[in-house]
Structures are given as C-alpha cells and as structure tokens.
Amino acid sequence: MELTYSAATKKPGKIWLLNFAVSILLLNYILSASPASAEIPGRIISLAPNITEILFAIGLDNRIVGVTNFCDYPEEAKRKPKVGGMSTPSLEAVVSLKPCIVVMTTDGNPKEFEQRLRSLKIKTYIFRARTLTELPQGVRDMGLELGAKEKADTLARKIETAINNPPTPPFTKGGRGGITEASQKKRVLFIIWPEPLIVAGPGTVIDDAISILGLENAAYRSKVSYPKYSIEEIIRQSPDIIFIGKGHENIKEVSKRLLKKIATVPAVKKGNVFYLSDTLYRLGPRVINGIEEMAGCLK
C-alpha cells in the first residue's frame, strides 16, 4: 500500500520521510502513553492525614513510604517514616525517601512545595476534593492515578451511600410536614475546642455532615471555616444540640467552664451535649463513621 502510493507520486523519497516521521510520532505517543496508565507508582509519600487514611483504605499501605507527623490513623500510619508537618514538610526528608509520587492536598500543603518537588523532577498528585460531596470523585481520581482503581471505586461508592442515604435522625422526623421545613431544622453547634472557643463553621466536613443529617449549623454566619467564636452569639443562636470534638482525653473537664457559661441554651438545659470522636475532622474514609456517630447521638 505504501509502496504503491509512493510509486504513484512523483517524489517518493519525501513521502517516505513523512511516513517515517508520522510513525515515529505514533510510536512515541504509544510509548509515552502506555507507561502512565500501566506503570504503578511504587513509592508513595502522603502529605496529609486524610490522604494517608484514604491510601490505607484503598489498600496501598505497602507502597506508602512517607507520611506527615500528623498522620496518626490507622495505627500503622504512625510507623511510617515521617517527612514533617503538613505546612512544613521537609524537602530533604521527601527527596531522601525517593518517592515515585508525592500526593498533596490543596487544603494545607504549601503550593511552593509542589513547585519545588516538580523542579526536582519528583512527580506530584494533587488531591482537590474539599467537601463531602466532592470526596467520592476525589477518591476515584486518586485511585486511578495510583493504580488502585477498583478499591477506590468501592470506597467511593460506600461514601456515596452514606451521603445519599443518611440515617434520618428522629429529631427532624417528627417536625416535617406542617410548618416550613427551615423552621423545623434543629440548630447544631460543633465545638472543636472550648477554650479558646473554636467551632466548625461553613466549608468544613462537619458542616457538610450537619446539613446531610437535615440539621442546621448554628455557626452558619461565620466567614471563616474554624472561627474563634463569640460566646454571646451561642446564647443568641441557642443551639438545640451541641457536639464537642474529643480533641483531648480530658475534654469534659476542659469544656466545663464553657458549658457553665452557656447553661441556659436549650442544648445544655436538655442535656443534648454530645462528645464526638475526631472522625469528621478529616475528609477521609472515616467520614462514614462520623455521620453514623452524629446520627447515633440524636436517637
């Protein structure tokens, strides 16, 4: 075919050259495309605790060669080599672990660090999910990149199920119907730390979980994700339920003073103050348990 074509033209030499060039390009394309999807990065460094949790959940534990100082879940994560904090990872530590890929997040890792890694020819992958609804797709994309497509897909589907079919808390069940739904929504305040008072505002996983359960975040007016909150605003917004994150073993002792100050709000008066684990602090696989735990308190 090629021969007849070149025979038919008046300048066979040039056509041959063109064909050669095209085939080289094609070959080059095939060669460059196939390793990207076929070659699985063997040595992974995670620069965020939630990413570490996802990597463990999609069965990549053996390939993780480095994590941050804050990666404390699951237990095995603590035994992985440390590369520094989320905002202050050590470039030397990362480079010396000879990673095939460094997984980073837009939520807490410095952008400059990614640029420096790239300038050192170290491959990076950026996990971009920031909300609960973005999480399943984020897990899928990351799984695809790291060669764990199936397990990532399974985890993503589990999270989707938890988000789309939340256990309806009885708190909102009874009220639906008669009056408008907005006025029926119970107000919830999630206290991250009582002193100084830090609460979960909009744009946090906790806020997402609260709205998934059909509740309303009392700190919805905040412009910051984790504001240092005004105590008198709590009294004014009079939340029906207060969750306090177990950031510390003795959290009950630490919160005593605050609870005394806001003793008149409905949540404290009716005893609807619950201590929750830290499962909703991170956008990772444990959010499923977090939503369940939160719903469980409302029974």
Partner: peptide, 11 residues
C-alpha cells in the same frame, strides 16, 4: 475585636 468579624472574634 469581638464586633468587626462577628460572630468570629479577633483577639
């Protein structure tokens, strides 16, 4: 400090 960014507070 407790007014301008309300409901958040600035030390």
């Amino acid at each position: 400090g407790r007014t301008i960014m309300s409901p958040a507070e600035i030390p």
